[in-house]
Design a protein around this nucleic acid. Structure first.
Lengths: 194, 194
DNA sequence: TGAGTGTCTTGACAAAAGTCAAGTGATCTT
DNA sequence: AAGATCACTTGACTTTTGTCAAGACACTCA
């Protein structure tokens, strides 16, 4: 069951049997039903979890409105990055959009493994680099000027997510309101069906 | 002269004398006059450089228009992240805004040191985490809804940069045009001088 | 089954930002 | 010193997006 996580870590840098065993020993499988919270506002993000199955989103509240910061599906590492790295309470919620099965390791365990197995830092570094890379792609979307460009960028990046997420959540992710997204989408699909 | 870089790396994780010596041996001081290019579109970012003195900005071209992705001043690490991590040609320009003195290490040297000194990966990981954290702050700015909110966020984050960067570049960074920024700023300062 | 709820759409209008154009003042150039 | 250029501002107008309101449709659940 926790093989997907082991495979993922191995792909970042091959692990010795000893290290693999150590990682296995601290990994726990946790299930979250749809709509439940994996992390809440004000909590410190004390673990890193890989999504084995399901879909989640992170968001925060600004002026009373939800702003979705990202969507995470199978294979992604769920963490509220700022809170995780600083180990201070964050302002992000992470909510299961569908039923989720997560493979989780506690922050304290990860730190211990960094010390016991210095080469595990290679994996930590590469994972951070990858997460950063993903974040930069999301940021490029936000820098698009028009609502249609943002929508197209999202389509390109996450074609499969469109069916799994409500329009409302996609809209707060793209930085526009629901009505605008609805209009953009209908215009867009008219254009492309001609 | 290269002490600021050594100090910075030590602050991320203390380095042994041997490691410090190794880092010194591969660090080069490079100067760039104002307006010159530190990296150009289509090149692969093959080094990481810390700004010892000066100010630079990175930008890319979208639909013929410059979009400034970030400003970097003293103490910052200059790299075109995506190109650096993937070691593939990127689409970013990095330009000196003022005369710059950089402390540079080649990508290949960094990789060698990662292998020779596994604990150097701790520094690499933490630096990446920090750069990621900075990037998330920039992204929060882009998620602000109105031009005024973006401007205020920029003021809070980089109060000292306002005097050093032209309005035009700040505008492309904030995702609005020059005229809008000019108006926002004049409205804002009228409000706050009453 | 029928009231309630959530999701998405559409319309009319308001607000915000973009575009185009012109103008000022400062600096640079030859 | 005249001309050119650059950085910034301001005005008039257009386009885009947001807001408010209403309606269609599917789904839940008591």
């Amino acid at each position: 069951m926790i093989e997907p996580l082991i495979d993922r870590l191995n792909s970042l840098n091959p692990m010795s049997d000893e290290l693999t065993q150590r990682v296995r020993s601290v990994t726990r499988v946790i299930e979250y039903p749809a709509d439940s919270y994996i992390l809440e506002d004000g909590q410190t993000c004390s673990r890193a979890c890989m999504i084995e199955k399901g879909l989640a989103r992170s968001y925060y509240i600004n002026d009373g409105k939800e702003i979705t910061s990202r969507f995470m599906d199978e294979g992604f590492i769920i963490t509220s990055w700022i809170s995780y790295y600083t180990q201070k309470p964050g302002n992000e919620f992470i909510q299961a959009v569908e039923d989720c099965t997560l493979l989780c390791i506690e922050y304290a365990d990860i730190q211990r493994i960094y010390k016991e197995f210095p080469e595990f830092n290679i994996i930590g570094r590469r994972q951070t680099e990858y997460a950063f890379y993903q974040a930069e792609l999301r940021t490029q979307m936000l820098r698009k000027h028009t609502a249609e460009e943002k929508y197209r960028f999202f389509l390109d990046q996450h074609p499969s997510l469109l069916q799994r997420i409500s329009l409302k959540h996609i809209a707060t992710y793209l930085g526009m309101n629901e009505e605008t997204l609805s209009r953009v989408r209908s215009r867009f699909h008219k254009k492309h069906s001609l």
